[in-house]
Design a binder for these strands. Structure first.
Lengths: 242, 242
DNA sequence: CGCCGACTTGAATTCCTTCAAGTACGGTGG
DNA sequence: CCACCGTACTTGAAGGAATTCAAGTCGGCG
């Protein structure tokens, strides 16, 4: 993953995939003030209860959102990859209801929320693209509720892997057959509502069945058809973007 | 629950709670074409894969969204009550990725998606209120991922009850201490990722601990403080609306 | 009155967790 | 370059929470 030279190109590319922008839209985006930042892994970008005034575009690296129970349980509710807009939600909701943290070293661009909001009001095509992005996020949350609520451990993991592969590919970050996972097995466990021990066993089971091949965090999906079936994965919920 | 006389008053009240509308906004809403409908329980309002061209406002009764696994498992991903806008998402996403069904007899108002979309473009305050509504829905989905992924059976049910009570109250539909559940224990099971049998046992356990009192589907929350603690319920994620 | 869906209860089973050791690897400092 | 250290990963065995299977009971409605 080489670092993209231009945050605007990444953002425009992303939004264009969600809905066509015209030249004036692109000009307006390129005029956005912003600041760049590099952060190590496990660095918090947003804290629950905070009142952030900036919106974050992930340029490089990976991040996740998570919530915690009072008992200390941790649930990751989404993973994010380069090109993802993090917390569009703080445009409209004053307080963050969850944490966002990097899971690998990351480069970021921060935009003032007020400027994005101005674009929403003045540029209908941008408003529409941002709407789509938010609605797709919501669709992914629904699929995660299903995943965690109604699939068994092996399918859950398989589904998570399929989703990661499909989104990666849709975002133009590489192929879906072979990729490096940025997250630990513990983080996979927190995302799928299981324990790290059982994640480990299920990864081995998927490999033993010939669905995937693993070398450290490198994953190869050996047989997409069988894998999709085992995962109960139907990419329709990603709405051909993400 | 007496039926509201005016769908517009319900919609305007709802949006006003999300963000202040001015007189022109209200006039624009009252000019929306629409059709009223009454449906029995277990009537599908939206089918997965469909391309609906209307947006539905629930006037009276209850509904839920659900997704299914290929193996036949069913996961309810949200419950809806009078005043809720169902599937704002089809304004922007062509195909429904889940089903929506009534769980009790319901009265509905259907608005053409194109007219709502026009309001989004021309009336910034309405756009903002709809954004908030959608973002709150997304926040609720995240909480459900946490609920299903990381809480034990008793807490899950307790949390579901607390959320239902809090949303009911926020929507001005009555108190939070005592209410009638519209859903069967089977539906509670489908929402919390458990079996109906175990839902039954956990409801009895909650009653035995003096947290709730039940008479058929009538629920009284006997001790909100203890119940909130047992449920690990913090209403912040509802963002003071819903 | 009788039927059907919703609810209730018990017993056996299973999937996943918990607990407990260990191993492999990448990074750091000597 | 190698010893050391911490984190991530791996594996086994025991325990537990929730499911499954199997019978009921209750209550509303035709």
């Amino acid at each position: 993953m080489t670092a993209p030279a231009d945050p605007f190109a990444l953002l425009i590319g992303k939004l264009n995939r969600l809905g066509p922008l015209d030249a004036a839209d692109e000009t307006a985006i390129r005029a956005l003030p912003h600041r760049l930042a590099s952060e190590p892994a496990n660095h918090h970008l947003v804290r629950e209860g905070a009142r952030p005034t900036e919106v974050c575009l992930l340029l490089d690296g990976h991040a996740c959102r998570y919530k915690t129970t009072r008992g200390g349980g941790r649930q990751i509710v989404s993973f994010h990859m380069p090109g993802d807009l993090l917390d569009l939600q703080q445009l409209m909701l004053p307080r963050a209801d969850h944490d966002i943290v990097t899971i690998s070293p990351a480069r970021l661009a921060w935009f003032p929320a007020s400027d994005i909001k101005r674009l929403q009001q003045n540029r209908p095509a941008i408003n529409e693209a941002l709407w789509r992005d938010t609605l797709i996020d919501a669709s992914i949350y629904r699929e995660w509720v299903l995943n965690v609520g109604r699939r068994d451990a092996k399918s859950r993991i398989a589904h998570m892997l399929c989703e990661f592969a499909a989104r990666r590919q849709a975002a133009g970050l590489g192929g879906a057959e072979r990729f490096e996972l940025p997250m630990t097995q513990e983080q996979i466990a927190d995302a799928t509502g299981m324990t790290a021990v059982h994640v480990n066993r299920m990864l081995h089971a998927l490999a033993a069945e010939g669905l995937i091949a693993r070398d450290r965090r490198l994953v190869e999906i050996v047989d997409w058809n069988r894998m999709q079936r085992a995962a109960d994965f139907d990419p329709a919920y990603l709405h051909a973007a993400a």
